[in-house]
């Protein structure tokens, strides 16, 4: 069944400075929405507001017709990968997976070139890229309708980025995904819709030329 997430009329200021002024965003099952924007443009702020962990001055979030104030409180609706690692450092990888997934899915979760052999390892002993991969795979594996990924490619090696992009594409068959990252080439590669957070609002992007037009990338990057 297809689901629809909409966020509208978002207003957010920090210390009197408006960061987000009038946002409208829509994501449906099957979408991989790549959200780009300069540092400090409000991408992460928007994702946190959407998830419900950051209050906004004004917001309107609707998922499948139901208005939600804190979407993360609703069961199986939204998952969120924050910028910084969120897994409890004291737990073993296996324990983390068991706490998130049904028992019957745990064994197949570990049939994986990266996680194979890390089952008994403590989360705190994982390398940065391995931890990011584990977090992303976990969030894409749980039964939420939408997944928000804030900088999924940060600190991850190119070979692992390719694996993550594969996971995102596979998960988008049954979920809607919104992702943001400064690695815009990989965002443009994996996403099937794009937008740019600019001047407190959202600009829909259909080609690289528009990223040049709005000053996100320079003219020299257009042909790369």
């Amino acid at each position: 069944m297809s689901s629809v997430l909409e966020i509208d009329s978002v207003l957010k200021s920090f210390g009197g400075n408006p960061v987000l002024t009038d946002i409208y965003l829509k994501c449906e099952t099957g979408d991989i929405l790549g959200m780009l924007g300069r540092n400090g443009s409000g991408k992460s702020t928007l994702l946190k507001i959407l998830f419900g962990t950051l209050p906004a001055d004004r917001k309107f979030i609707r998922i499948d017709g139901e208005v939600l104030d804190k979407p993360y409180n609703a069961r199986n609706v939204l998952s969120f990968l924050p910028q910084n690692n969120f897994l409890p450092q004291n737990l073993a990888v296996e324990k983390v997976v068991e706490l998130y997934l049904e028992k019957r899915f745990v064994a197949s979760f570990f049939i994986d070139q990266v996680l194979d052999g890390l089952r008994k390892c403590k989360v705190s002993n994982l390398a940065g890229g391995e931890m990011r991969y584990l977090e992303i795979k976990l969030l894409l594996s749980i039964d939420s309708k939408f997944v928000l990924l804030d900088e999924p490619f940060n600190g991850v090696s190119p070979i692992l980025i390719e694996v993550i992009k594969g996971l995102i594409k596979e998960a988008s068959k049954v979920k809607g995904i919104i992702l943001t990252d400064h690695d815009y080439r990989n965002v443009l590669d994996v996403a099937n819709r794009y937008c740019l957070v600019f001047d407190g609002g959202i600009k829909q992007i259909s080609n690289k030329g528009e990223l040049v037009k709005w000053g996100y990338i320079s003219e020299s990057k257009r042909e790369e």
């Binding site: 998830f51 804190k70 993360y72 609703a74 969120f80 924050p82 910084n84 690692n85 969120f86 450092q89």
Partner: peptide, 15 residues
């Protein structure tokens, strides 16, 4: 020091 770990629980709908 471990504020981000709350997201581990938020992602399972626990406030």
């Amino acid at each position: 020091s471990k504020k981000n770990e709350y997201y581990f629980y938020y992602n399972r709908s626990i406030s």
